[in-house]
Amino acid sequence: MAAAAAAGAGPEMVRGQVFDVGPRYTNLSYIGEGAYGMVCSAYDNVNKVRVAIKKISPFEHQTYCQRTLREIKILLRFRHENIIGINDIIRAPTIEQMKDVYIVQDLMETDLYKLLKTQHLSNDHICYFLYQILRGLKYIHSANVLHRDLKPSNLLLNTTCDLKICDFGLARVADPDHDHTGFLTEYVATRWYRAPEIMLNSKGYTKSIDIWSVGCILAEMLSNRPIFPGKHYLDQLNHILGILGSPSQEDLNCIINLKARNYLLSLPHKNKVPWNRLFPNADSKALDLLDKMLTFNPHKRIEVEQALAHPYLEQYYDPSDEPIAEAPFKFDMELDDLPKEKLKELIFEETARFQPGYRS
């Protein structure tokens, strides 16, 4: 834990890192770190609560700039109880001085990944967590956004079992017609939660990839272990087919990539493993919904509104309290091709509203 900075004593240090967030945020305490930044909790002297502050230093890398800009653009436009918001952003007053960006968010005690390492969940908890994931996802999908990296560590939890989806750095506007060349190379989302079509096709992607990830998360809540822990690309596919069985001819016809289709045709026939054999203690309604989410063919996979209306979630289902976005989200430009200098300018502009004396 960093010592509390005395008023006016300059930035606090946390594990050798400068955290320049005073005077409003003090009493910093280390939480963890990701690929390009550290997260601390801090005391907000204005709202009198502890908050989470993520320090991001992305400006050396085009990919990190892209992810940072995506996350900020999306989260500043989203407003939903099951999606983490941005409360404040701290950065230098000029673009030349801006080396880091500090993002202030609600402090959540833990995440689903940490929880599943230590606790076996009751059916009631599984049901409530799944409902909140789908409630947040309904809003995301209504904005025409794909999260693309749903996994237990991106689901934040607090002691009252509130759940918030975080990390929109890989999110995209849904565009089933656009052929994202190089899709697989830039697709760094965790393999275990990846839909089979991501490994088999490169053309376009749809909201059904997020539903697949939610199915993987439900299976993990039922058993405290990942359902498809593939060691590499082909191993991942083999794990999936080992449980779902061989795809039907109709399902194979959806695979545009001939090499991928021929690979699947070359494999020995596998039978589907019954879900109640894998999860003998699970609620039968939970397994019915799991089956509809972990469907090989993305066109037959359940959609988020149908999933919310499934009998497993009937005690929570309330369409009048499951809000959607006001308007579909649009990125003005494809960020993939922009140089990091341009992305830095866009991050600077996007964060201006939090600067003292800002006038829109």
Rank of each mutant, 00 (worst) to 15 (best):
A2F: 14
A2T: 02
A2D: 09
A2P: 05
A3V: 05
A5E: 08
A5N: 15
A5H: 11
A7V: 12
A7M: 12
G10R: 01
M13D: 06
M13I: 00
V18Q: 09
F19G: 03
D20A: 08
D20F: 08
G22H: 13
P23R: 14
R24W: 15
R24D: 13
T26D: 11
T26S: 00
N27G: 07
S29Q: 14
Y30L: 04
I31Y: 14
I31R: 14
I31A: 15
G32I: 04
E33G: 11
E33D: 00
M38I: 00
V39P: 04
C40E: 12
S41G: 13
A42Q: 11
Y43D: 11
D44H: 10
D44R: 11
V51S: 13
K55N: 00
K55D: 07
I56T: 12
I56A: 09
I56P: 09
S57H: 15
S57P: 15
F59D: 09
E60R: 08
H61Y: 07
H61D: 06
T63E: 04
Y64T: 09
C65T: 12
Q66V: 05
R67T: 14
T68V: 07
L69F: 13
I72G: 10
I72S: 04
K73W: 07
K73S: 05
K73Y: 05
K73F: 05
L75V: 13
L76M: 05
E81Q: 12
I84L: 07
I86Q: 08
R91A: 14
R91F: 12
Q97N: 13
Y102W: 13
Y102L: 09
Q105F: 14
T110F: 15
D111F: 08
Y113P: 05
K114N: 00
K117S: 13
K117V: 09
Q119C: 12
H120S: 13
H120G: 12
L121M: 00
S122F: 11
I126A: 11
F129A: 12
L130H: 05
Y131A: 14
Y131M: 14
L134K: 04
K138Y: 09
Y139L: 05
I140H: 05
I140P: 05
H141Y: 08
H141A: 11
H141N: 00
S142N: 15
N144G: 06
N144C: 07
V145Y: 07
L146E: 06
H147S: 04
R148P: 02
R148M: 02
D149E: 01
S153Y: 04
N154C: 03
L157C: 10
T160V: 09
C161Y: 01
L163P: 03
L163C: 13
K164I: 00
K164L: 07
K164H: 05
C166I: 08
D167V: 00
F168E: 04
F168D: 08
G169S: 04
G169Q: 05
R172G: 02
A174N: 09
P176L: 03
P176G: 06
D179H: 06
H180I: 03
H180D: 03
G182K: 07
L184C: 02
L184Y: 04
T185I: 03
V188G: 01
A189M: 08
W192F: 02
W192K: 03
Y193S: 02
P196N: 04
P196R: 01
E197K: 00
I198Q: 06
M199W: 06
M199F: 03
L200Y: 10
L200S: 02
S202H: 07
K203F: 06
T206W: 06
T206V: 02
K207G: 05
K207D: 09
S208W: 06
S208Q: 13
V214N: 01
V214Y: 01
L218C: 06
A219K: 01
E220I: 03
N224V: 07
I227T: 11
I227F: 00
F228D: 09
K231N: 01
D235G: 09
Q236V: 04
L237H: 03
N238T: 02
H239Q: 00
I240Y: 08
I240R: 04
L241R: 12
G242R: 15
I243F: 01
L244K: 08
L244N: 12
S246L: 12
P247D: 08
S248A: 03
E250G: 05
D251R: 03
L252A: 07
C254A: 10
I255G: 12
I255D: 11
L258H: 11
N262I: 00
N262W: 10
L265V: 10
L265K: 12
L265R: 12
L265S: 12
L265D: 09
S266A: 13
S266K: 15
P268L: 02
P268T: 02
N271F: 14
N271S: 10
K272W: 07
K272M: 07
P274N: 13
W275D: 01
R277I: 00
L278C: 09
F279S: 01
P280S: 03
A282P: 04
S284A: 09
S284Q: 05
A286P: 14
L287R: 08
L287H: 10
D291F: 07
T295F: 13
P298Y: 15
P298T: 00
K300D: 09
R301T: 03
E305N: 11
L308R: 14
A309M: 15
H310K: 06
H310D: 13
P311M: 14
L313F: 12
Q315S: 12
Q315R: 08
Q315E: 13
D318W: 14
P319N: 12
I324M: 10
A325H: 15
A325G: 14
E326D: 00
A327Q: 10
F329A: 13
F329D: 12
K330H: 14
E334A: 15
L335H: 12
D337K: 13
L338Y: 12
P339M: 04
K342E: 04
L343N: 09
L343T: 10
K344E: 02
I347T: 10
F348D: 06
F348E: 06
E350C: 15
A352P: 12
R353M: 05
R353G: 04
Q355L: 00
Q355N: 13
P356E: 11
R359N: 15
